[in-house]
Design a protein around this nucleic acid. Sequence first.
DNA 1: GCAGTGACTAGTA
DNA 2: ATACTAGCCACTG
Length: 107
Amino acid sequence: MSSKHSNWALIYTVVESIPYGRVATYGQVAHLAGLPGHARQVGYALHATPDDLEIPWHRVINSRGEVSARSEPMFESIQQQLLESEGVLFAATGRVNLKRFRWNPDE
DNA sequence: GCAGTGACTAGTA
DNA sequence: ATACTAGCCACTG
């Protein structure tokens, strides 16, 4: 966590607004936070997100519609399980149909 | 300040 | 469809 105020707060705000049962991509979150091109930073911020903050980090996936690999592979299955519990369907390939489940803020 | 790193992405083959 | 590449940019040591 950065010592001074950072853009992570903006990222958290966007992630918190992702509706139940919907997903958003890292690039999408960065864009909505007014930080285009900061997709990697979104992932970094979520990785550093304290668990006590009730942020739906699991609703953020990559542009291919799949759960991004991380240092702790255990959390990948946890993330998928959380999404499935919200009704987000995973194909046999382990990918989500973004056409169907990606959050559209304009709705 | 510089180099390494990463829960990324779009492009190319 | 997958695999690899270059670009990306804040954070860290």
